[in-house]
Computed example of a mutant assay.
Amino acid sequence: MDAIAYLNIILRLAIWFLLTADFSLSNIIIGVAIALLLPRGATSPSALKDWLRVLWEIIIAIPQAYMEAIEIMLRPHNHEDIVQERVKPCRTPGLVFLDIFLITFTPKTIVTKYHENGWYEVHRVKRKRRNTVRQGDRETR
């Protein structure tokens, strides 16, 4: 088995444990069996590099998520929009899942839809800046 196959099995097991929240011996055996029995797709040689890049981005996203959560608590974010983001080319289903997880992991963004033609719909909250200037006792915009 190559490295990508191991990463796919680990990803499948992680999803299984997140769904079941049960680390009993019988559940571990069932999870391993399911991870091994699910069909595998063909992988390209550059897929390992993509996997490592996404795993690094997830490590970077953890402190970013904490910073965004604190920022949302301290300064309200009252503007939202939905944007389209392009899926990176030649993504395996596992990498698409990790991309969606990465986008949704941070508090300011969530993937609302994945389009099979290569786009994510991403809902974002933003802090809208006002163009407010105080002049005396009245506000102008």
Rank of each mutant, 00 (worst) to 15 (best):
S26M: 14
K88F: 00
E116R: 08
N27K: 11
Y114K: 08
G136T: 09
R134V: 12
A35R: 09
A5W: 08
H79R: 07
Q64C: 02
M1W: 12
E71M: 13
R124M: 08
H115L: 14
V125N: 01
S44K: 12
W51T: 05
K49T: 13
V133Q: 06
H77N: 03
I100K: 00
K126H: 08
M73W: 13
S44G: 06
T92E: 07
R40K: 13
L74N: 02
L52E: 04
R138W: 12
A65Y: 05
W56M: 02
R12W: 09
V96A: 03
T140S: 12
D50A: 14
E85T: 00
E139T: 04
D81P: 01
E85F: 09
I29A: 14
L19R: 15
R86C: 06
Y6N: 09
P45F: 10
V87M: 15
N27S: 14
L48S: 07
A61W: 09
P93S: 04
L38G: 02
T106G: 00
V54G: 00
I10R: 10
D2P: 13
Q135G: 03
V122F: 10
R129Y: 11
S46M: 11
A69M: 12
A65K: 02
E139N: 05
N117P: 00
M67H: 04
A21W: 15
I15H: 11
I4S: 12
E85L: 14
A65N: 01
D137M: 06
R129W: 09
A14F: 09
M73F: 14
V133L: 07
P39A: 02
Y120E: 03
A65L: 08
L74C: 10
P39K: 03
R91Q: 11
I60E: 00
N131D: 09
W119Q: 06
Y114G: 01
C90S: 12
A33L: 13
M67V: 05
P89A: 14
R141M: 05
V54A: 04
S46P: 00
Y6L: 15
I62F: 04
S24L: 08
R124S: 11
R127M: 11
E71A: 13
V32D: 03
T92M: 11
I34E: 05
A47I: 04
M1L: 08
L38W: 11
D81S: 11
D81E: 06
A47E: 14
V83T: 12
W51I: 05
L19W: 08
I34P: 02
T112R: 01
N8M: 10
K126M: 14
R134M: 10
N78H: 06
R141D: 08
H115I: 04
G118C: 02
L38D: 01
F105R: 00
A42C: 01
